[in-house]
Structure formats: structure tokens, C-alpha cells
């Protein structure tokens, strides 16, 4: 089976675009055969990551947020790239995301929800200084699904 074509979205660092973009990504998951529950949770993830990108990213004209959605039969990988964040910010975020569950810091409500809804989360920085957050969501492998099944 040929590899699925990823969806790429680039939009301004402007909160006005987020409701439309998150809805589009969530509809895409339905088109790709995921359930409405999966789709709704994907929307929450995109909303949180994009709002963080707008909040912490620069507001210089022309700056943009890039989202890539890679679909596999049972997973979606979401990558959100924004122009914000110093190397120290990225290091802090990486440290917090990567810490063992027992001793990790509270990320803030939004990122904690993202963590609960996904199977993996990582943050990196491009050579140009852009912050990249990558999350993987599987069809049914997260705390909330376990609790509600």
C-alpha cells in the first residue's frame, strides 16, 4: 500500500486561525477512518499546541506556524513547528516532558491534557531556532481511553 500523503498546513501566528485549523485537522482524521472520539481528541491536541505556539511565539509579521499530520493505519503523528522559544525554553520543555512520571513537573493544564491524550510527546529545535513539538496518537492507547472503556 502506498504511503499516505501527509497534510501540511502553514498559517500565521494569529489565534483567529486556530478554530478553523483545528477543525480541519479533526475532520481529516474522520476522512482517514478514525472515530469521532479520536477526531475530537485530536482537535483538543491541535488547539492546545497551536495556542501555545501563538502565546509563546513571536508576533512579527510574516511569522507562521506549521502543522504536519502523518497518518498510519492506527496512528496519527502531529508535528507543530513555531518560530518561538529560546534554546533554554526548549531545554526546559524537553526536561519537563521527558521526566519520569513519578517526579515530573506539572506541565500546565493544557500540556498535561495533551500528554494524557497521546502516546508520546517530544520537543526539538531546528537549526533556525524554531520549536518543534511532535506527538503521536494511537487509536486506543492513552490514559483516558483506559479509564473510559
Amino acid at each position: 500500500m502506498p504511503e499516505k500523503v501527509p497534510i501540511l498546513i502553514e498559517f500565521p501566528v494569529d489565534a483567529d486561525f486556530i478554530p478553523s485549523v483545528r477543525k480541519f485537522v479533526s475532520e481529516s482524521t474522520l476522512i482517514e477512518g478514525f472515530t469521532p472520539k479520536f477526531s475530537y481528541r485530536t482537535e483538543i491536541i491541535v488547539d492546545e499546541l497551536c495556542n501555545n505556539a501563538v502565546k509563546y511565539g513571536p508576533s512579527t509579521p510574516g511569522s507562521s506556524i506549521k502543522i504536519q499530520c502523518d497518518f498510519e493505519p492506527d496512528t496519527i503523528q502531529l508535528t507543530v513547528q513555531d518560530p518561538g522559544g529560546t534554546p533554554k525554553d526548549v531545554q526546559n520543555l524537553r526536561k519537563v516532558i521527558g521526566t519520569e512520571q513519578e517526579s515530573r513537573h506539572f506541565l500546565g493544564h493544557g500540556l498535561e491534557i495533551v500528554r494524557m491524550l497521546t502516546s508520546g510527546m517530544e520537543v526539538t529545535q531546528t537549526p533556525n531556532g524554531e520549536t518543534v513539538i511532535r506527538v503521536v496518537k494511537r487509536r486506543s492507547q492513552n490514559i483516558i481511553d483506559t479509564l473510559t472503556e
Binding site: K4, V5, P6, I7, L8, I9, E10, F11, P12, D14, F17, S20, V21, K23, F24, E27, S28, I31, S64
Partner: peptide, 20 residues
């Protein structure tokens, strides 16, 4: 303000693009 999209060539995406 500018947006750009790369989308699979699948007619199923057209309503979602319209709505976006």
C-alpha cells in the same frame, strides 16, 4: 495574512477545505 496547504488528492477532503 497567508495560509498554505498540501492536501491528499482525495475528493473527501474538499468539504473540509471549503469549511476551513
Amino acid at each position: 495574512q497567508k495560509m498554505s496547504l498540501q492536501v491528499p488528492a482525495n475528493p473527501g477532503y474538499v468539504p473540509a477545505i471549503r469549511r476551513l
